[in-house]
């Protein structure tokens, strides 16, 4: 068992999650704090999008069919700046590239699932669900229904995102300049809460230092490309630190 093994979400009780329904509700429960963190983010998106010139229908459709928060933000910003559809779609692709890293991580655990599971779960894959589902899959119990945990997490995140988008659409029509509300910090603090408890092993600390330094140095790259490169730098540093310890 690697020393980096840790649980950032303490609400997952693996001893009691053996039925489909129990897994589903455990997924909902484990995702609750992340939903709280996503609420302001969704509201700002709705408000920002209608203020940037997108129609109400297009704003709602984006949340319903794209369902990828940070790329929706970037798209709203680009619409406000007058960018064309092709540029926005290309940017969306780059901003969402990190999801392929999530898929690579989860895929070995989901080998047995048919497409009727893989297609919706892939569509619902977000930063938040990835974080809790990855932890669930890493737990050693052999529950055959861990994908139900994923489903619970995903449906909760999705429902919340739709509701918050609509709240934001109405709030944005009433109150101008949503970007100045400062609620974008909610996402930052959520991710800090996921990350900090895990900073107890050398390889993870090495990973975080490298990713942080690279992210700062590469912040000037267009389309958040720096995010992908910094992630890979962090992974490489973590692996090197772990190898250095295994063979002193």
């Amino acid at each position: 068992m690697p020393a980096t093994e840790q649980s950032m979400v303490s609400t997952i009780d693996s001893t009691r999650t053996q039925t489909r329904g129990a897994e589903f509700w455990q997924g909902v429960k484990a995702t609750f704090p992340l939903v709280v963190g996503a609420i302001p983010f969704g509201i700002i998106f709705g408000a920002l999008a209608v203020n940037s010139g997108l129609s109400v229908a297009a704003t709602a459709a984006m949340s319903a069919f794209v369902f990828a928060g940070s790329s929706q933000f970037v798209a709203a910003g680009l619409v406000a700046g007058g960018a064309g559809a092709f540029i926005i779609i290309l940017t969306t692709f780059v901003v969402n590239l990190r999801h392929s890293l999530y898929s690579v991580t989860l895929a070995p655990h989901m080998k047995h699932l048919p497409q009727r599971w893989l297609v919706p779960l892939a569509f619902w894959l977000t930063d938040e669900s990835f974080l809790v589902v990855e932890q669930r899959y890493r737990q050693p119990d052999d529950s055959p229904y861990k994908h139900w945990f994923f489903l619970g997490s995903a449906i909760f995140m999705y429902t919340n995102w739709q509701l918050c988008t609509w709240i934001g659409i109405f709030a944005g029509q009433a109150l101008p300049d949503p970007a100045s509300w400062g609620l974008d910090f909610a996402l930052v603090v959520t991710f800090i809460g996921m990350l900090a408890p895990g900073l107890r092993s050398r390889p993870v600390i090495a990973c975080v230092l490298a990713a942080g330094a690279a992210a700062l140095l590469l912040a000037g790259l267009p389309n958040k490309l720096g995010l992908i490169v910094a992630t890979l730098a962090g992974v490489a540093a973590g692996m090197l630190a772990e190898r250095g310890r295994a063979t002193p």
Binding site: P2, T4, R98, L101, Y102, T105, D127, F130, L131, E134, R138, L187, V188, F191, I192, M194, L195, G198, L199, P203, V204, C207, V208, A210, A211, G212, A214, A215, G226, L227, A230, T231, L232, A233, G234, V235, G238, M239
Partner: peptide
């Protein structure tokens, strides 16, 4: 296993 901490850091 380093992807979650690395992505989170790169965003934060």
């Amino acid at each position: 296993k380093f992807i979650p901490p690395a992505v989170l850091t790169a965003i934060i």
